[in-house]
Design a protein around this nucleic acid. Structure first.
Length: 166
DNA sequence: CCGGACAACATAG
DNA sequence: CTATGTTGTCCGG
């Protein structure tokens, strides 16, 4: 059973889904309809129910994070993935609000300095964007790199955190 | 500065 | 096994 909520934000419609008391998905799309479709793909044959009240506190955290300045502790996350992906996501959680890292730095941090590109893939596979700050990972040369759903979202998130120079 | 070639690697199909 | 990608480095223009 998946409980979810949808909230409007400056970067688009955001869906937050919870299962067994932990956040399993955060998704940013143009419209609520796109989000519903995303749920169909990611959780086929899984009972889903919208419950805004249940996800009220999480909504506040995500909204604060998107607007910047939010410093509420991240809620429990359900991070299912390969061992490699999990190590990358754990590393991303260590990046302070307003700071950035390069893909190469993350690769070094997890002990696999040559896996920079694989790190980028793991970022793209992050099921919980915003809460796991994959948007704080940029290129070595200072350019933004890419972002699932569009770099405009990545730009907006970074700018909201006060990151400059891009 | 800009484009092209290529190395390196986890994942998906 | 092959293709791909949120990279990085090197080499010519």
């Amino acid at each position: 059973m998946i409980s979810f909520t949808i909230l409007p934000t400056p970067v688009g419609a955001v869906l937050i889904a919870k299962r067994d008391g932990k956040i399993c998905t955060v998704s940013i799309r143009e419209s609520a309809a796109d989000l519903e479709r995303m749920l169909d793909r990611r959780f086929p044959r899984e009972e889903r129910k919208r419950d805004d009240a249940l996800l009220a506190s999480e909504s506040a955290v995500v909204s604060a994070a998107i607007d910047g300045g939010g410093h509420v502790a991240a809620p429990p996350l359900e991070l299912n993935g390969t061992p490699f992906q999990q190590s990358v996501w754990m590393e991303l959680l260590k990046i302070p609000n307003g700071a950035t890292r390069s893909y190469a730095e993350i690769a070094r941090a997890i002990g696999k300095p040559k896996s920079t590109r694989a790190v980028a893939q793991a970022c793209g596979a992050n099921p919980v964007p915003v809460l796991v700050p994959c948007h704080r990972v940029i290129r070595n040369d200072g350019s933004l790199g890419g972002y699932t759903g569009g770099i405009h979202i990545k730009r907006a998130l970074l700018r909201a955190e006060g990151v400059t120079g891009f």
